[in-house]
Structure formats: C-alpha cells, structure tokens
Design a protein around this nucleic acid. Sequence first.
RNA 1: GCGCGAUUGGCGGAAUUGGCAGACGCACUAGACUUAGGAUCUAGCGGGUGACCGUGGGGGUUCAAGUCCCUCAUCGCGCACCA
Length: 821
Amino acid sequence: MKEKYNFREIETKWQKIWEEEKAFKISEDTDKEKYYVLEMFPYPSGKLHMGHVRNYSIGDVVARFKTMKGFNVLHPMGYDSFGLPAENAAIKHGVEPAKWTWDNIAEMTNQLKEMGLSYDWDRTVQTCNPNYYKWMQWIFIQFYNKGLAYKKENPVNWCPSCKTVLANEQVVDGACERCGSIVGKKNLSQWYFKITDYAERLLKNLDILEGWPNKVKTMQKNWIGKSRGAEVTFDIKGMDKKITVFTTRPDTLYGTTFMVIAPEHPLVEEITTPEQKAEIEAYKEKVQRMTDIERTSTTNEKTGVFTGSYVINPVSGTEFPIYISDYVLLDYGTGCVMGVPGHDQRDFDFAKKFDLPIIPVIDTHDPEIDLNNLPHATAAEGTLINSGEFNGMNNKEAIVKMTEKLESMGRGKGTINYKLRDWLISRQRYWGTPIPMIYCEDCGWVPEKEENLPVMLPTDVEFTGKGESPLTTSKVFAQCTCPKCGKKATREMDTMDTFLDSSWYFLRYCDALNEEKAWDFDKQKYWMNVDQYIGGVEHAILHLMYARFFQMALYDLGLVSNEEPFENLLTQGMVIKEGKKMSKSIGNVVSPEEIIGKFGADTARLFILFAAPPERELDWSDKGVEGSYRFLNRVYRLVYDMSDVIKNAPDTYEIKSSEDKSLAYAMNYTVKKVTEDVGGRFNFNTAISSIMELVNEMYKYKDHEINEGLMKDAVEKMILVLSPFAPHICEEMWQHLGHETKLYKTSWPSYDEKALIKDEIEVVVQINGKLKERMLVPSGLDKAAFEKLAMENEKVKALVEGKNVVKVIAVPGKLLNLVVK
RNA sequence: GCGCGAUUGGCGGAAUUGGCAGACGCACUAGACUUAGGAUCUAGCGGGUGACCGUGGGGGUUCAAGUCCCUCAUCGCGCACCA
C-alpha cells in the first residue's frame, strides 16, 4: 500500500484478482440460506450510462452485504440483446446485427468489470445467443400447446418508422414507445399470447406482493383495469338480431335514450339502412384514417352517424336509435354502449350534440340540480326515479336487483371486464427470436419439432430499411417441411417481441449453462424467487407484468415452483443533472467512463449511493463526486497512518478513557446503523453518512492517547462496513493490515449492544412544549428520578418560579415537558 | 378529469414508533501549515442576534406535530372518450 491513494492501480489489481479467483462464482449449497439479487439486465448499446451505474451499484452493495452476512448469493448479469438498434446499425453502417451486438456486449462487459461488480460471470446470458433463444422457442411451443398462443387477424398498432406492429403497452400517447412516430392501424394476422386469461390472477396477486412499491402495483392495477358490471341484450327492431352492451351501471337502464356502437363493429353493416349507408360509410372511412392521437384528442366534441335502426329497451320496452361513434372502442367490452345521458358525461355530450332526449333516472338529492333540465350528467349515488318498479330504490341496490331481473329474463348477466388486451407478440423484424411455427397447407400451423430447435436466424439477409422484414429476403429460411405430415411447408417470418426474451431470463440464470433443458427444476426451486429485484420504474407495466404472466403460465405448466417471480422490488429513481434528465440534446450527460477514469469506480459508486436514497431522483453533482473522492482519500490516509499501530496492536483491549468509550460507542453505533440501513431499509445514503461520522471520530481520537487494540478494532470494522460500497480500496487496506483472507470472503462484523449504552445522556426540558434547557443525566433513570433531577435544575427552577405546574410529562432518556400556567 | 407521490437552510439530503428540526456531504467564510494551494487541518455556517421565529399556505388534534387529520397551492409521475 502506497502513501498516496492510487485508485487506478488498486482497482485494476483487485479486479484482476477477483476475475482470476472467480470470486463470485456460486453454486447451490443447501447448507446455506440462498439470496437472489437481480438487477434488470441492459440492452447492450455499447456504453454504460449513469442509470446503469446507479442500478448496478445498488445491486452490488446488496449482493456483497448479503454474502458477508453468510448467504449463498446469486448475483448474475446478462444482456437483453435482441432489438431494433442492431438492425438500424446494419442499415446505416452495413455491419451485421450479430457482430454489432456482440461487439457492444464485449465493450459493455469491460465497463461493468471496471465497476468492480460482484457478478457470477459464468452465468451470463445473451438473449441473442442461440443457446438462449432455443429455450425461448421451446417456451413458446409449450405456451402454444397449452393454448396460450394463437394467431388472429385484427387491426393492430403499426409503427410506420419501425415497420413493425406494437403491443398496446408499447404505444405511448398514440406514438411508438421506441421511436416516437405516430402509430397507425393495420389489419394483420398476428401471434398473440392470452394474457387476458391471467388478468384476474395478475390483479389479485398484487395484494400478496408486499415487497413491491404501491406505485407500481397501482399502475398495474389500472392497466389491468377491472370493471364490474352487467351485459344487457337488446333486440333490434324489425330484425332477428340482438345487440349486447357492457355497462357498469345497470341501475341506469331506464335512462337509456340511444345506443352507440363502434364504427368498426361487424354489426354496423347489417343494421345500416339503405338511406343511411352513404353517410355511415363516409364516417367509417374517416375514422379509419385517424390515428389514435387524433381519435382521442377531440376530448369533448362528439361525432357520429345514425344507422337508421332502432333497439328496444328490454325492461321498459321503449325504442331508441342506434348510432355509430368513434368514442366507442371496438375492443373494450362488447364494442357497444347504451347511451345514458343523464348519468354519463360522454353520453350527455353526445345527446346534446344530436338532440337526443335526456331522462334522469337517479335523484342525487342535490338542491343545485334541476332534474328537469340537467346541467351535466350526474354520477353520484341516489334514488331511482323514472324506472318503473325500481323507483325509490337506492341505486347501489338497484345495480344488484336490475342485474337479477335481467338474468331472470334471459336478457343479461353480471359480468366483469378488463382493459387488458391479449399481448401481440409478432414483430416484422429480423433481430429477434424466430417464432418456431410452420405453416402447412394441409395441417395449418404446426410447431417446429423440439429436436430441431433452435430455429436459427439466417445470415443471408439484406438490410435495406425498406419493404418487408429482412427475414423475407433470406433464400433458405422459409423453406421447411411440415413436422406433422412431412410435406413442403413455410416458416413463420415474424420474430418475437423482445419483451418475451426478458420475461424469463431470471429463470435461465438459475441454470444458465444447461444444454438439455431451459432450466433444471430443482435448481430453479433452490434459487427462485428473486429476493430483490432492482430497476427503473419505466418497466412498471411492460416488463414487470409480462414477467409475472410468464411465471404464472410456467407455474401452470409445472415448470416453476412459484406463481410470482419477484419477492421485493426496488424501483430506482432517475439520475438527472441541474433538474433535467440527462440527454444529448441538452448536453448535460455525464459519462460513467469519464468519472471512473478521473476518480475511480469506488468513488463513483460511493457518490451515487450517497447523494440520494435509491428510489428518489438523483441530481448529479460534480462537486459532490469530489467530496466522495476526498472521503476515500481521508479513509486511506487514516489507515495508512495507523497501519503500524494496528499491525502491532493486541487482539483484545479494555475501554479505559472517556475517549475510548466514545470511540467504542461510535464504532458499534456505525456497525449497527449500516447493518440496518443496508439490510433493511436500503438507505445507503444514511449508512454512508454514519461511516463518515465514524471516520471523523477516529480522526479526533488519534490526537489523544491511542488504545491500540481499540483503534485496530475500529479501523477494521470501518473497512468491513465500507467494503460493499467501495470494494477495491477496502480490499487493499484490508490486505495491507495483514489479513491473508480476502475481504470478500470475510464475515460482516457484529456490534455490542452494551457499548451503545452511555453513562450519561443529554436530555431536554421543555416548558409548554418549548425547549428551555439541556442537561446531562445518568442513563437508565426512571420517570420519578428523572423528574426530580430536572426540577432541581437551577434554570428550570427559575423558569417555574411562581407558576403553577399543571402537568409533567417525562419520557426517560429523552425529555421532560412541564405544562405550566 | 381520475389516481399516486412530493414540497425541510444557498444546494443534495437527515430526523426509523408523534418527543432536541437541519445528521452527513456540497458550497461558502475565517484561520493554520506552506515557495504555492484547487492539497490538508481547525473553527463557523436557517433567520433575528435578548430569553424569539422557523419544515409550501391556512386550520385542527395533542403536554408535544416535518411526522396524524381537514383544506388550499405548486411541482412531478401514471392513466385517460374503458361505457
């Protein structure tokens, strides 16, 4: 150990040692309690950004801490390496997606290693690796055989720029989540996963995910969007046809004055009368040309066209007209809505626009509302009116009774609806897992035989950026034989959404090298669940719901032992600078490479954990980084200066002076604080600040007479608790102090509760809740003794003099409050 | 519009169960050492400088409120014509 802190030398040295010793290689060990800590794996863009540094620093502290605590820790890392940027690079620079991706992976691996992260590198997965996507295809086939994958033609979200379809979850504000282009609609035959079959379980299980942030659970809950209500069937006047609507408010059935169906609804053609046909067709065409943005931006201005047909209210027998309008969505509920303008604002707006009657059926007992001339729709509770036999009934009760009546009439039933749609998983892209399905003219869609997996991506493809998916340009890919009948057949040309790849990688980590299976059940059983999952909140819905769905489906297939994969979830905040998101266009990007080059990985890690609690936004501060660097230098100097003392110090010692006592207190307090903050609350910032306090104490202490044994103890414990945050410098100091065993193999220190009891403690005296006096009292006083002592205090006496003490509240060890009049 | 979360010194943030507001760090000020200091060390650092006021504003509960309740404001995030 040199006099000056040379982080570059130290970090290189220890990274090499860890690598050579395979320090973090792990295997199943039933003697130890397992702990699985996982950070969301990156897309290999080639360069780490500060968000990665934050994510992986958090995970690494947890992993190293748990390891020192004696757990058998699984801490893996890999790459979500299929995806569009690789294809774009191919189009732009003519480099093959595979080469581009693997180069990036190599580059990124180097950067991760420079951070000193404690991964078991032998378990690394790359989703673009045939030994990974082989099992992706295998899982797809299991899902297909279970009836969870199906193909259907449907209007789908189409990104004109990415030239592919998108899942609902990937359309944000009507635009492509990836590139921001306006998403249009296209009728295509596509593969879907039946995630809707799992809607109820996905929703219900949220309640048992106690280790998840409420925010994420709420977001998923809203996304699943469960609504309870009823389906009501209406006869169409003069036709042998019926229309079924979904409503959450069957109690308002008597208030229906019109019906609206989605323009795309197949029934529209049948019910349109000849004289309305032209207008209906024109409207449909107009709607079809609109993007989702246009369709939803005209918030209040309702449009629509009368079809010429009428329906009959099953309970009241009244007739009313059927319209089409774009505010009714084809894929929610039944695509048909009963218009109740009195109690639904959208219906109210529509009725006003088309001059349709408005019948109030619920009296909300609001004196401001004139029931004969409603100013707006009312949604509040109330009593039914204008509703025949239901008049006078509370509307909550009416929901039940009306549903019962409809059921008895065979006109409806209580039902539940979800906003969640099936997951569209086909992508018209090259750089993804080929969907292992074969189309045979005689047998239809047939899965590829398992022994033929993986269906390899062909390399004889062209990247033009135009026309269809590059896969279609391959001369060999499509040709195959039907696995069932052996006739000539063709392969599916679409690849899978990359979100499939990331929906089970945590399972592959459990048994990453298995060539016979996706994973061994027992190994999975040993490691799962993920005890701590860490990543950005931007994955709250997409990835985290898809992964939950996969796990449930795999559970039903008997392939995994739990229904939910992630026990505890930490969503880390963004790294920002000067209040803004780091971005190239603003020019406020701080590169991890630069920071590590200038101050070292230990400083970078320490700062990013110190500057803010993990779930909050972190404002990057260049000055703050220097502060962390200064702190590590301060630690280094202390250890360097004390090393002779420590090396010659005895292993046991006695507390003699009051300085000894307070250093022993600080040492034990810090160990306790760090243990609790890292092990329980994940408040790394306060853990680090308490280590700083201990270091400050030691600097003060070394100017007094040094108790060598105590000094040694304090310095060593300080190094141990600092090591998860700044592992390289701590290994170096640890070795320098004469330890043969590497720090990463050393146990976490314990603390002595007895040393945390002080002889004297400072308490405060308040009068009427205002702080008036501080005093030192012996610790462990009971209420009465404490009160007596306080009342003897000169200042307190003077303040109470001549006044009436009404009440005394004594909190031993803390304060005394005198209520005085 | 609906839902969730935040608001504490010049700044990032502490205060775990209602019990000393401002830990720790940054910035700043003064001093020491020094040929020099952007190194290091020491001291100070919410406002007013009297015993008072201070956790976005207003109100409440309590002996005691940053913390609990009501209300308003601002900012951020999510969802949004979901019947």
